[in-house]
Write a protein that binds this DNA or RNA. Structure first.
Lengths: 134, 134, 134, 134
DNA sequence: GTGGTCTAGACCACA
DNA sequence: GTGGTCTAGACCACA
């Protein structure tokens, strides 16, 4: 399910962290559930175990996961389910960047909105959800 | 006018390349016009001249600029003015990434659209262009 | 095996590129084989690692080699073994330059041929291959 | 008559020196004859006068030319007409380099000779001197 | 003044 | 261990 881009300048261990965080945020991984083992995930991502180990280590420092010696890593129980608010804040950041980029290229707001809507449509169709936005 | 983020994982010389490319794409720098000198731009960006030199060198390899010995660097004359098409293709990529991110977080299209519109509004207001989208 | 002339006007990084290219062209380095590490080659050539790094980087941009993160650089697999044709084209260029130079000095073709043959003989003898051309 | 390649790594002022030297060696410029003025040559070569000035200055240091204040530069009278020997020594160097290059590419002497002869033929024909080597 | 090359050496991600 | 980026600073050709 989780992927990583080795050609990106964004470090592999940061990409792994992001992917895990997303799984937790979306509820795909719930509090207390085990993470894949470092070795398994590493071989699945075609990456050195050190890289996954670093990602897990830093996620633990962030309190998102806990590691039990000799047993493995688990989603932290104390980790409150991600509120809609946190999720939205994340999206705000992403959209703000895209908008800033577009405006930096001298696009007018109405043009930006039009293009965005058209792209959104494409994604909706690609996911085979029919013709509407919902 | 042009900025660079030294804390980003995206390399400084790549950031410089991107910034110059944007200036050309938006027409802020037209064919034949001189670029800022390596030393000037470097000191303006608070960056080592070598870093700007590498950016300029790679932009020349890409054919976007030309350098005249002892005189400086110029926007390539052969560089056709960027069509609206190229610009849009660039935007599509950016928006597609943002949308994919949002959908990966299980947002519904209508939610995505709503959030996007709200963010776009904020940017419009921040730019003090009145109250509408245009 | 490979050398570089620090007194030449021809840049060191270009010399390194040429030397590597020659090793690939002659089959001394085959597709998939590892190149010497940047640090090793640099210290062997008595040159700064940055210089070798630039040579390798540009060879990668040319598609001649590939670099694997944290592992090293390898002769590109897609790099078809150099045909006799390419080799000859290279020699043609070199000989043409020498001939043009000689003719620019008003040498007659027969004189040029005579001198060339004498020099070739010397090289053959220097290599201790006996007395003939073969 | 004389040319220069601005894209070469070989410095322009060295190229100018070489060209002048060749003119003297071949007798195109004889002892006592005036050289083109710095300004004329510079504009003819599309080069900055400083560059030609440097070439002339260094040729004077070498004793090949003399400059008379307010009058211009002249081929040095003391400059003995170039003997066949000097000319040959120059050619030897050029051919030796070409041969070394070819042998470095694992060519056999007989192959080298064959290729060279073929190229020489081409040059002869290009100069429209008929079919033979003389 | 302009770019271009090169060195010395630091710091980082990745294996 | 591997390569990649970056800085500080020297020296050079050219305008």
């Amino acid at each position: 399910m989780i992927k990583v881009d080795p050609t990106s300048y964004f470090p592999l261990y940061e990409q792994v962290k992001e992917e895990i965080r997303k799984l937790v945020m979306t509820g795909a991984l719930k509090a207390g559930e085990p993470l894949p083992s470092i070795r398994d995930l590493a071989s699945h991502l075609v990456v050195n175990p050190n890289t996954v180990a670093r990602a897990y280590r830093e996620l633990e420092q962030d309190g998102l996961i806990v590691t039990k010696k000799g047993k493995g890593c688990y989603v932290s129980a104390t980790n409150s389910p991600v509120s809609q608010k946190v999720l939205e804040a994340h999206l705000h950041k992403i959209f703000d960047q895209a908008i800033a980029e577009a405006m930096g290229l001298n696009m007018k707001p109405l043009e930006i909105q039009t293009i965005f809507d058209r792209r959104l449509m494409r994604h909706v169709k690609k996911d085979k959800k029919g013709g509407g936005l919902e």
